[in-house]
Design a protein around this nucleic acid. Structure first.
Length: 898
RNA sequence: GGGGGGUUAGCUCAGCGGUAGAGCGCCUGCUUUACACGCAGGAAGUCGCAGGUUCGAGACCUGCACCCCCCACCA
């Protein structure tokens, strides 16, 4: 978007210098990315290109990286997102912005802890024996390696991150930010501690938030169990999918208005096996009259609904399943048994007591741990929570007001849906790796939440203090990332200079986990949304592979880079980045991008060879440009405009396609072939050749600049040979298009030329003769269009050359050939050999198609509705189309009749 | 139970009111002095189904079918 360019100047790359040392203009014959990729990265970094430069007031563009987990290495999904970000960063940098892109990593509590636990298990070390301190030390060692690996992967990708500002969520400054945020929310009453039923993972041994529970439909059983009710001989039949929890039942519930169960009102039931007396309570919220028997067993300690009902009715909360998933002492004879074993035992016992009325197959949704897939247990425990509504409402308003915008837009609705139905957030985790909760309890039971570690209890002065052993949910620190990286809550220069950021690029899978929470935290703590645009990209999957979870998409970006080159991987990512929700990556695409890189390389070799040691036009001012020159410069300018427009809309795929099409099909297939003709000396003079070389230079320079954000290494490598200014492409102006170069007349003329050439080639193909077989072409430009006719005259030598014509005649086609109309120009084509029966048949077929189309078009033009209501230009276009079809019919018809 | 997305050439996907596009694959020719990771030409689509709106519909509306994703405290 040209208007967006702070130092826009047309003719971006025009003023580059001729290299001083001619020997340096040679490119290696074979293209090997490994030769130069790492070298350029070092040069850019050493020259400080990744750091924001320019006066503080000048336009800036800031992003923070979504910090990868330090669990191991980067996968193809991360590399995808980082590539898109780097394209934006390099594009904006070349447009003259002060670009800052902040790198860093996330400690990733549960995920990282699990990795280390697995390692320890392999070594036969017991975590508990090792102890918290030594365990955490061990994770830090792991973290250093993982961070290095991740950093080197990101570097290999070419990402222009400012490594001098690298952050880690457990850095002292960022930990201080976490404590500050926690204390502030606590003091504001937005963090509270309480005993509630939470999602508990027995394997991880920690509470998790609602978002960390993955619901899956499973085929289970619905057990119908009869409880004795004194006074009601039939007893009460309840249905449950989890019979083991019945040991924790403390009531039965019925709906007050359900006549079926009215007889239980005020009664007391007896819990089988245990013998506990269960009051029958009436709870219209808990009991759905439509479902099952209308009687619900109430287990306040093991079901969130039952818990709420229990609190409403003051029921006892009996925990029968412990944090390890085994039955507690409250479970009597089942104590110590695994929850699923206990279920089997209980069912058996009920059966033997004739209390099991039935077992029905029942498909229902079951929560699983996001990390380890263990069945989540609702578990009553004391945890810390964020009261979310007061944070969510302003975050909703910010998006409504357009302060934050989602691209693609469809995510806006998803965001609203979630935010409007959001629940309080359980933030405490019973883990060792993470930010310790800054809450301290003294010997006298006084709880204090404080930013600094306490020496004595502020309430009673006791010096016997224990800090809460729990850590915070990783996302609690991640939500602060866009400002904690800049030193918040301190008013640092970076915080003042670079916050809020501009764009956040991430996968839609963490919209709720991370993006929404950052918006809430940003607004609450800093008063502004942390970014103005969120680009949510699709999730990467490999071709042929289903979306399945633990398939572990094992394609390491580094493997792809070593095989195809970083530029090819990046270009593949860009061209695959459609607006859909999945991005498919496959080897054929990678190979295609590699081929494209090679194409550019070879086009550059050719161009550099032509320029070497020969004069070229430094400027086109006052020089006579040929139609092909004007055409390619016009196309170049339009391409630049298109690319900028597509990037501004986050349409990386369209931008990549525009560049691909221009470079390959117009510059290489079109202009280079025409330039060869001029440069060979067969047409034009020395001046024309100078101009051609100037145009070639300009096209290559601008192509390199336009492609640089996508393929930074290769373009910088060629740029050095072209300009003799190594490592400067990254900070060269980005072409935005030059309206002065746009030339519809030249475009039309060359399009006609190319169409004629194609028609001749295709004629040879149809007649099955070699491309060198002499062909005589007649063309009869419309005298009514003087400009077009004149341009065709001018292009005659080019037409002869490209179509390898033996003869070219301007005038009515001779009667012996085949006739057609190409781009509005009547033509005749003839070979020495006469047309065969097969040729006539083919022509007849084409003729039939044309007749059909002519009928349709004329029917349309006879339709009054169309003539009255369709816009004039559409009607006119239809008329012209009909005219052309009729002309072709006439031409072909006359030839076919011969 | 709610919400969202998809269904276009063999494959992967663009297009989103004016009678279909790309890349890859496929077929046929090519040592055309940058490139076989190439050049030239070509074949290939009832745009999921049925209605409707419109002069005109892959494109807008309404149903339907089948796929996918997200959210959800249905014992």
């Amino acid at each position: 978007m040209p208007g967006d360019n702070p130092h826009a100047r047309p003719g971006a790359a025009e003023s580059v210098e001729t290299p001083a040392d001619e020997s340096s203009t040679k490119l290696e014959k074979t293209f090997d990315p490994a030769h130069f990729e790492e070298r350029w990265y070092s040069i850019w970094e050493a020259e400080g290109r990744f750091q924001p430069v320019g006066p503080p007031g000048s336009p800036r563009f800031v992003m923070v990286i979504p910090p990868p987990n330090v669990t191991g290495r980067l996968h193809i999904g991360h590399a995808f997102g980082r590539t898109l970000e780097d394209i934006l960063a390099r594009w904006k940098r070349m447009l003259g912005y002060r670009v800052l892109w902040v790198p860093g990593t996330d400690h990733a509590g549960i995920a990282t802890q699990m990795v280390i636990e697995r390692e320890l298990a392999k070594e036969g070390i017991d975590k508990l024996e090792l102890g918290r301190e030594r365990f955490v030390e061990r994770v830090w060692v792991w973290k250093r390696d993982a961070k290095d690996t991740i950093q080197s992967q990101i570097r290999r990708l070419g990402c222009s991150l400012d490594w001098t500002r690298e952050r880690f969520t457990l850095d002292p400054e960022l930990s201080a930010a976490v404590r500050h945020a926690f204390v502030r929310l606590y003091e504001e009453g937005l963090i509270y501690r309480g005993r509630y039923v939470v999602n508990w993972c027995p394997r991880c041994g920690t509470a998790v938030s609602d978002l960390e529970v993955v619901h899956k439909d499973v085929d289970g059983s619905l057990y119908r169990i009869r409880y004795d009710v004194p006074g009601v001989p039939s007893g009460a039949v309840v249905a449950t999918t989890r019979p083991e929890t019945m040991l924790g039942d403390t009531a039965l519930a019925i709906h007050p208005d359900d006549p079926r169960t009215a007889k239980f009102q005020g009664k007391t039931a007896v819990l089988p096996i245990i013998g506990r007396e269960l009051p029958v309570i009436e709870d219209p919220i808990l009991v759905d009259r439509e479902f099952g028997t209308g009687i619900v067993k109430v287990t306040p300690a093991h079901d969130a609904n039952d818990f709420a009902s229990g609190r409403r009715h003051g029921l006892e909360e009996v925990v029968v399943i412990g944090p390890d998933g085994r039955m507690t002492a409250e479970a009597g004879e089942y104590a110590g048994l695994d929850r699923f074993e206990a279920r089997k035992g209980i069912v058996k016992r009920l059966q033997s007591e004739n209390r099991l009325v039935g077992i029905d197959p029942h498909r229902h949704s079951l929560g699983h741990c996001q990390r380890c897939d263990t069945v989540i247990e609702p578990y009553l425990s004391t945890q810390w929570f964020v009261k979310i509504r007061p944070l969510a409402d302003p975050a909703i308003r910010a998006v409504e007001a357009g302060e934050v915008r989602f691209v693609p837009e469809l995510w806006t609705k998803t965001y609203f849906e979630w935010m409007r139905n959001i629940h309080d957030w359980c933030i405490s985790r019973q883990l060792w790796w993470g930010h310790r909760i800054p809450a301290f309890t003294c010997a006298n039971g006084h709880l204090t939440v404080a930013e600094e570690d306490l020496i004595a209890c502020p309430t009673c002065g006791s010096i016997e203090l224990t800090q809460d052993p729990d850590v915070l949910d990783t996302w609690f620190s991640s939500q602060l990332w866009p400002f904690s990286v800049f030193g918040w809550p301190k008013e640092t220069d970076d915080y003042r200079g670079f916050y809020p950021t501009d764009v956040l690029v991430t996968g839609y899978d963490i919209l709720f986990f991370w993006v929404a929470r950052m918006i809430m935290a940003g607004i609450h703590f800093t008063g502004s949304a942390p970014f103005s645009t969120v680009h949510l990209h699709g999730l990467v999957r490999l071709a042929g592979e289903k979306m399945s979870k633990t398939r572990g998409n094992v394609i390491d970006p580094l493997v792809a880079i070593s095989e195809f080159g970083a530029d090819a991987l990046r270009f593949t990512y860009a061209s695959s980045a459609t607006s859909g929700t999945t991005v498919t990556l496959d080897r054929d695409r990678l190979a295609g991008s590699r081929n494209f890189a090679t194409k550019l390389w070879n086009a550059a070799r050719f161009t550099l060879g032509q320029l070497e040691g020969k004069p070229r036009a430094e400027s086109f001012e006052g020089r006579t440009l040929t139609l092909p020159d004007r055409w390619i410069l016009s196309r170049l300018s339009r391409t630049a405009g298109d690319v900028n427009r597509h990037l501004a809309a986050f349409r990386f795929d369209e931008a990549a396609q525009a560049l691909y099409g221009f470079l390959w099909h117009e510059l290489c297939d079109g202009y280079l072939e025409m330039a060869k003709h001029i440069l060979s000396g067969r047409e034009g003079d020395d001046g024309a050749r100078e101009v051609t070389r100037g145009v070639l230079h300009r096209c290559l320079a601008d192509s390199l600049a336009l492609l640089h954000p996508f393929m930074p290494f290769l373009t910088e490598e060629i740029w050095e040979k072209l300009t003799g200014r190594p490592g400067t492409l990254i900070v060269s102006p980005y072409p935005t298009g030059d309206p002065a170069l746009e030339d519809p007349r030249a475009e039309a003329a060359v399009e006609t030329l190319r169409a004629l050439v194609t028609r001749v080639r295709n004629f040879r193909g149809e007649r099955r003769v070699s491309p060198t077989e002499p062909v005589h072409l007649w063309i009869e430009p419309d005298p009514g269009d003087a400009e077009a006719a004149e341009d065709l005259r001018v292009l005659e030598p080019m037409l002869r050359h490209l179509a390898r014509l033996s003869d070219l005649t301007f005038g009515p086609p001779a009667a012996l050939g085949e006739r057609d109309v190409v781009a509005g120009v009547p033509v005749g084509l003839a070979l020495p050999a006469a047309a065969s029966e097969a040729d006539r048949a083919r022509m007849a077929k084409t003729l039939a198609q044309l007749e059909k189309e002519a009928d349709e078009l004329s029917a349309k033009l006879r339709n009054p509705g169309f003539l009255d209501r369709a816009p004039a230009d559409v009607v006119e276009k239809t008329r012209r189309r009909l005219q052309e079809v009729e002309e072709r019919r006439a031409a072909l018809g006359s030839a076919a009749r011969q």
